[in-house]
Amino acid sequence: SPPEPGNAHGCSPLATMEGTSTSKMLLYSAAAATGVAVAAAVLWARRTHAYEQYVPLQYQYRPGTISGWIAKALSRHSKQRRKQRPVRVYVDGCFDMMHYGHANALRQAKSVGDQLVLGLIPDSEIMRCKGPPVMNEEERYTLVEQVKWVDEVIRDVPYDLNPQFMQELFTKHRIDYVIHGDDPCLLPDGTDAYAHAKKLGRFVMVKRTEGVSTTDIVGRMLTCSRVNPIIASEPHPLAKSFSGADEALKNEASSSSTPRRTTLSCFLPTSRRLVQFSNGRTPEDGARIVYIDGAFDVFHPGHVAVLKAAKAEGDFLLVGLHTDEDVQARRGPHLPIMNLHERSLSVLACKFVDEVVI
C-alpha cells in the first residue's frame, strides 16, 4: 500500500508537531531552572557579602567548625610571630618643653606597633631648622625617656629623614613604620621632611592634640608675668594672642578688683582622655604605697627626678594634684600656667606614676 502523506521519512505532520512541542517544553524548563539557580547564587553571594561586611571578623566563625579551628591557629601563629619579630615604629621630634600633646602623640604611635623608638633631634639641628630651643638636649632627653609609651631613644638624628638615614632606620634599627602628627613639618627650603618615608609607603599619620603646643605654653608664660602697678591696669599685649577672647579679659577686670591671670586654656578635658592615659592598675595586697602631692605645673626634669625618687621608696606611686584655686591662693593669681586636667595628663604620662588623685 502507498505510504501515508507526510515528510520524506514517512513521519506524519501530527507526530512532527508533538516532537517540536516537547522540545520547546524541555528548553523552557531548562531555562527556568537555570534562572532559578542563577538567582539563588546571586542572592547567596549578596547575603554572604553583607554578612562579611557588617559582622566583625572574630564573630564570623562558629565554635567547633574547621574555620574556627583555623582562625585560632592563625591567631596563635600571629602572636608567636609578633613576639619573635615585634612591629617597631619610629617617631622623631624636638620635644621642647614636653607637654601632654607630645605624650598623646606617643601614645597613638605606640598603638600602631609593639615597640616605640623615639628619635631626639639635637640642639644643632633645631638651631639650623627652627631656631634655639627653650630646653637643652639633656633636659629634653630626660623628659622623653620618662614617658611610659617610649621603649627606646635614639639621639643625634637628623631633622629631615633623608634616604641614607631612612636606610639606617630600616636595617640597623629594624623600623617598620615612621609616624608623625597631621601637622605639616617643613624644612627651611619648604619641602616636606617626611617626603621620602611617604614615597616608600612606610609613613603613618596620627592626629594632633588640639588646644596645646609649645608656642602656646610659652605664650602663657609670657603673659602670666607677676602683678605690678605698671601693668596691673592694662593686660599684656601678648595676652590677646593666647587668651582666646578680649571679652574674657574685660569681664575679669570688671568683676574683680584683684588682678587675675589672663590666659585661658583651649583644652577640653574628657573622661575618655583620662582613661587613655591611665594605667588602670591597682596596688596589690601588701604593696608599699607611696604618696606625693604638688602642683606639677609645666612638667619639667625636676618633676621627673622627684617622681623617680618617690617611686623607688615603694611599689605603687600615688600622686595628688593641687587644684587651680589652691595654687593661685599660695603662688599668686598668675599661676598655674596649665590647668588641673592638663597637669594631670602630664603626670599620668610619666612611667613612674601609677595613679593620680585629682
Rank of each mutant, 00 (worst) to 15 (best):
L318S: 07
F267R: 11
T262G: 05
R260E: 13
N251Q: 12
E252R: 15
R272F: 03
K311C: 02
D315M: 08
E313W: 01
V275W: 06
F277W: 07
Y291N: 04
L249M: 11
S256P: 05
L268V: 13
S265Q: 00
L249F: 08
F296Q: 06
F267Y: 15
P283H: 04
T263M: 14
N279Q: 14
G314K: 05
L264G: 04
T263H: 14
A310H: 10
P259R: 12
S256A: 09
A312V: 02
T270I: 04
E252A: 15
R272P: 00
A253S: 13
F267D: 00
G286M: 08
L264A: 13
G294N: 06
A305G: 01
G314L: 03
P269G: 11
D293E: 14
L249Y: 03
S255M: 12
A309S: 15
V275R: 15
A295W: 09
F299K: 03
T270M: 00
G286H: 07
A305Q: 15
Y291D: 07
V298N: 02
F299V: 02
V275I: 02
D246H: 11
D324Y: 10
F299G: 02
H300E: 06
V319S: 02
F267L: 08
T270C: 01
L317V: 12
A310Y: 01
A309K: 12
F316K: 08
R281G: 00
V306N: 09
V298Q: 04
K311R: 12
N279R: 15
L274H: 13
E252N: 15
D315Q: 12
H322Y: 14
D293H: 12
L307C: 07
D315K: 11
S271L: 04
D297K: 06
S278T: 04
G320F: 11
Q276R: 10
D324C: 08
T262I: 06
A253F: 05
G320M: 09
L307S: 11
V304P: 05
V304D: 03
V290E: 02
K250M: 03
D324I: 10
E247M: 09
T263N: 14
A309I: 01
V319R: 05
I292W: 00
L321G: 04
R288C: 09
Q276S: 06
T323K: 02
L274N: 03
L321Q: 09
A305P: 07
S254D: 10
L307V: 06
L321V: 00
R260Y: 06
F267A: 02
K311W: 07
S278Y: 03
E252M: 14
R260A: 13
T262C: 12
L249Q: 11
T262M: 10
T323W: 05
F296L: 05
L321Y: 04
V290W: 05
G280I: 06
K308M: 10
Y291K: 12
L268W: 00
G294R: 01
T282C: 10
Y291H: 13
